[in-house]
Nucleic acid binder design. Structure first.
Length: 347
DNA sequence: AATCCGGGGTG
DNA sequence: CACCCAGGATT
């Protein structure tokens, strides 16, 4: 198919299909650019079905940028708890504060300006601009790279950074000037529903006639992605300890992995200074089982111990004793929740 | 360009 | 188990 005719075909059939078949999602019922921004941040590396309840709670808790700007960090993280990539929440709040201070609470409408805002990268910039404001800008995510690599039978390695730029140029060549929102969302919707990673539903595809991969029988070998994940294993002993007054020992994590989230004390098995670090003397601790948790390139194995403890406040360097009610209000990463569930089940 | 940053669905 | 998801920040 001749290039400009192919672009026209894709625009028309993709948008018509999207208008007719699009899923009814919460962020498709709003025109508030701030709420659309929230949805795009939550959707980074995260599936639609996972995001929906988080989006509903978050927009209810922080309906305006002013509400989010004023939020406490623990409250913010509690509402993000379980969603992962917690820096997204902090960057979103920092970004909202920037928009209030520098742009009078109005999200900028140019790629150049919006890209300076914390947490808004090339994808989110294009998504917010096109969906909230109708600006014809590319929004290239994993779905779009997969769909376009098939439509144009491109064998570039989508794991490489420069390949994303190739797709950004391609989108700018073929994007609908009249409805960039439906065009961008149509590409993503197609990737999520029809042009899936495994077993694409080509017989249901609205743009199959323009798909070079389908024509050549390459739809299952595209896109090409080379990168491999090397994961490390780390072993811990973890302690769910209760004091005589009924309170539990927790501590707040520092920077890096699960930054600023709360946890029960974790000791790397190689760490021989645990007793001095916590200043704890405990008795009646017993093993209650093992927790495993897989991160992107890390695997935790935690031997969980429960018991009663007394702490020498003079020696304790870290840790806070909290009631069960206070514990419930702290943002706890999933592996820590697993530790708690294990201890409760063991009783 | 490579690495870090979560968690869950899917086969 | 491997893959991947409406990616961005940091180095």
């Amino acid at each position: 198919m001749e290039p400009s005719a192919k672009a026209t075909y894709i625009r028309e059939h993709l948008i018509a299909w999207y208008q007719e078949e699009k899923r009814d999602l919460p962020w498709r019922r709003t025109s508030d650019p701030y709420h659309i921004w929230i949805s795009e941040v939550m959707l980074q590396q995260t599936r639609v079905d996972t995001v929906i309840p988080y989006y509903e709670r978050f927009t209810k808790a922080f309906p305006t940028m002013k509400d989010l700007a004023a939020a406490e960090e623990d409250h913010l993280l509690k509402l993000w708890e379980g969603l992962g990539y917690y820096s997204r929440a902090r960057n979103l709040q920092a970004g909202v504060r920037e928009v209030i201070e520098r742009y009078g609470a109005e999200i900028p409408k140019s790629r150049e300006e919006i890209s300076t805002i914390k947490g808004i990268g090339p994808y989110t910039a294009g998504a917010v601009l096109s969906i909230a404001y109708g600006v014809p800008e590319h929004a290239v995510d994993g779905n779009v790279m997969r769909v376009l690599s098939r439509l144009y039978a491109l064998e570039n390695d989508i794991a490489q950074a420069k390949t994303r730029k190739l797709f950004e140029h391609l989108v700018m060549d073929i994007i609908s000037p009249d409805d960039p929102s439906s065009f961008n969302q149509g590409l993503m919707e197609l990737g999520a529903v029809i042009c899936t990673p495994q077993k694409p539903k080509c017989l249901l595809c609205p743009v199959r006639e323009a798909c070079q991969a389908f024509a050549e029988g390459k739809e299952t070998i595209l896109p090409i992605k080379t990168k491999k994940i090397k994961s490390k294993s780390v072993q811990y002993n973890g302690y769910v300890l209760q004091r005589a007054d009924g309170k539990w020992l927790v501590e707040q994590r520092g920077e890096g992995l699960l930054a600023k989230m709360w946890q029960f004390p974790l000791i790397e098995l190689e760490d021989t200074e645990w007793n001095t670090r916590y200043g704890i003397a405990w008795s009646e601790t017993e093993s209650v089982g093992e927790v495993t948790h897989v991160f992107s390139h890390l695997k935790w194995t935690v031997n969980v111990y429960a018991g009663k403890a007394e702490v020498d406040d003079q020696k304790a360097e870290v840790g806070v004793w909290v009631t069960e009610e206070e514990l419930a209000k702290l943002p706890l990463p999933v592996p820590i929740q697993k530790m708690w569930n294990l201890r409760q089940a063991y009783k």
